[in-house]
């Protein structure tokens, strides 16, 4: 009962303080708004990078072309060896006939060209398409497959793929770094702005201490004030996330530059990001004000 009473009083005091120190509150809210906008953008960018890295990785396939003279026995042997490679996730065997039919179905040009080739003339080969578990080890696995007897050629997007994956990983790390750095900066900004409001209320805190208010009682209104500032500060970033990202997605039709780079669908992504933004806002506001008020609680 007493706790509820104290909590009610804290909330009332916090709201009063936000209104009474309106200009300072506005300064804190603006600080939080600006940093949270950047945080939101960084979060969205980082998730998108993560997303299309995964999409590309999913499509990554090693194609092993078998020698023309490979017998059924040989194929089984090759399959067995491929299966034994630890990084291999799954594989599919296609005869040259199947490859031919598939290609013919894909385009009219292939259809006409391939029709004119007999089985002996056909440059097509039996293939085994291999999906790997860890894309980072793609080239390593490809090399292993290449060494298998009766495997003529191995193809995968070597070089360019490796570089792309490495670059995406780098971008992901950088965006994480930016998000964390921004959160820290916001905490400091909030500590300083809340310090200003607190120093205006030093007298009150002093009297509270004199009449026997516990540290909890003194701190709580300020922490709630920080939460309120955090919530107000996250309104604009959330609007930007919701409407901005949806507009961005629509403008680019869900793809950036090419079909390869697919954007994450706005729903439920924007709600998740908005939730993250408001949670960060609240936590950052709380931490900021808690550490700002701590200074005044020492005798």
């Amino acid at each position: 009962m007493k706790l509820f009473r104290m909590l009610g009083r804290s909330i009332r005091d916090a709201i009063k303080s936000v209104i009474r120190n309106f200009s300072l509150s506005l300064a804190s809210i603006s600080c939080i708004t600006i940093t949270l906008i950047i945080v939101a953008v960084a979060i969205m960018a980082s998730y998108n990078v993560q997303n299309f890295t995964k999409e590309i990785e999913k499509d990554m396939t090693i194609v092993a072309f078998l020698d023309n003279d490979a017998t059924e026995e040989d194929v089984k042997e090759v399959e067995k060896t491929i299966k034994s490679i630890s990084n291999v996730d799954k594989y599919t065997y296609q005869t040259k006939q199947e490859v031919k039919e598939k290609m013919q179905a894909e385009s009219d040009v292939f259809d006409t060209v391939l029709k004119n080739w007999s089985d002996e003339e056909s440059p097509l080969k039996d293939t085994i398409q291999v999906k790997v578990k860890d894309v980072q080890k793609l080239s390593n696995t490809a090399e292993k497959i290449q060494k298998i007897d009766k495997v003529a050629v191995v193809r995968y997007g070597s070089g360019m793929v490796d570089k792309m994956i490495a670059a995406f990983n780098q971008v992901e790390k950088i965006t994480y770094g930016i998000v964390i750095a921004l959160i820290i900066v916001t905490v400091f900004l909030i500590i300083n702005t809340i310090k200003l409001t607190i120093s205006a209320r030093r007298r009150e805190i002093g009297i509270m201490r004199l009449v026997g208010a516990s540290n909890f009682t003194i701190k709580t209104p300020f922490i709630i004030e920080g939460m309120i500032l955090g919530i107000f500060g996250s309104i604009v970033p959330i609007l930007i996330t919701m409407y901005g990202y949806t507009a961005f997605y629509k403008h680019f039709d869900g793809y950036l530059y090419s079909q390869l780079i697919q954007l994450i669908k706005p729903e439920p992504f924007i709600y998740q990001v908005s939730l993250a933004v408001i949670v960060i806002g609240i936590i950052v506001g709380m931490i900021g004000s808690a550490s700002a008020v701590r200074k005044y609680l020492k005798v």
Binding site: R203, G206, I207, R209, G212, N215, L297, K298
Partner: peptide, 22 residues
């Protein structure tokens, strides 16, 4: 301890030269 000072303060009243009113 600093965090327990309130227990003492609740047992006493303090008056200063400068009143310290809000």
């Amino acid at each position: 301890k600093n965090s327990k000072v309130y227990k003492l303060r609740r047992k006493l009243g303090i008056v200063f030269q400068d009143y310290r009113l809000l």
